[in-house]
Design a protein around this nucleic acid. Structure first.
Lengths: 189, 189
DNA sequence: AGCACTGTGTTAGTTACTAACATCTCGTGG
DNA sequence: CCACGAGATGTTAGTAACTAACACAGTGCT
């Protein structure tokens, strides 16, 4: 692992640990930095904001690509829906406890919840661009994207708030099924 | 007008004016307070955060009530959709330039955009409660709400980013139409 | 060895936001 | 007419997130 990755990982681990034990607001950036053995300036070099330590997911480009790969003849909403589904299906099943802990942290904090949407923006923009490139109007693209992202994000946050043991992937699939014109039809196998 | 309302209104007007002219980040709370003829403490007594001056809409309770009033026999997504539609239809047509200016301000600023979702949370919670009260599972309620709110919010933000002259209400209707099982069917007239 | 580059620390800000307490205004009862 | 109490506002002093400027150390290349 490159040294820069290692440092980022150390900071992230220290931050999550402290946030989970004492709450997001009760922990200062200074403390996180100290726990990771760096100064607060180093913290901000790796993460632009305190929130961003928690709000980081690497799925944005994958989803946009998957949407672009769907049949352009489908309705925009259906294309986006199947794009999400495609990515979800090929996720590795290591739905580790850490992911859930992170989601739980986010779900329980209004400002972090809002931050999810801020970080979703990049994903949304990419998906919209993919749709528009195939002739969908910007408006329709944004609405279809907003609906799917809204449904999936709601499902994720719900996953972080309840105590049952359903898997993340199952929840996303169930969420997207609500948006299908023909429920249960996920396109060609 | 009660004096407290008058002060809040003065602060809001001063803030919007400054934000629109110089950008949200380039204006300090202190400046807004000065422009409104109060101290920064008074500002924070009326608005909990700098963002909240911009992000205030009074439609939350109306929407939840409208959702609750829809036929419980319908699918959750359809109930939420028609609830939104009902409120939208009875909005007064004074889609003043100020509303659009505000939306434009929000649409152009990542943190404000995120703040929209934070303020949407109250609406979402109320809608979900209305659905759950009629027997919908919490998960389905959250997903349906997230999808509709996602679509409508996307439509609003889009309205704030383009330059054409469509009305706000028309946009919301078009957005919700994307989520209809039978496009164009908005339920009983 | 000398040099650049990269990662990091130090310091000193700015700004959003909070708490504690002082003051002011205004309507009411004496 | 004056005292009083309550609500609205101001002052002051603080905390914490974030930024800019610059100094310093280790590592690789020549």
């Amino acid at each position: 692992m490159a040294p820069v990755e290692a440092t980022a990982q150390r900071i992230r681990a220290a931050a999550l640990d402290l946030f989970l034990r004492r709450g997001f607001d009760a922990v200062t950036v200074e403390e996180v930095a100290a726990a990771a053995g760096v100064s607060h300036m180093t913290f901000f070099r790796y993460f632009p904001t305190k929130e961003s330590v928690v709000l980081t997911d690497p799925y944005d480009p994958m989803i946009a690509a998957a949407v672009a790969a769907q049949d352009p003849g489908l309705a925009p909403l259906e294309r986006v829906r199947r794009g999400f589904l495609a990515v979800t299906t090929q996720m590795d099943d290591t739905e580790d406890a850490e992911a859930r802990a992170r989601v739980r942290l986010v779900a329980g904090h209004p400002r972090l919840r809002a931050g999810v949407w801020e970080s979703n923006q990049a994903t949304a923009d990419a998906i919209e661009a993919a749709l528009v490139a195939d002739g969908t109007s910007p408006f329709d693209a944004r609405v279809a994207t907003g609906a799917c992202l809204g449904a999936v994000t709601a499902a994720l946050l719900d996953w972080g708030m309840v105590t049952d043991d359903g898997t993340l992937l199952d929840r996303v699939r169930r969420a997207l099924d609500h948006l299908a014109l023909v429920p249960g039809d996920d396109g060609p196998a």
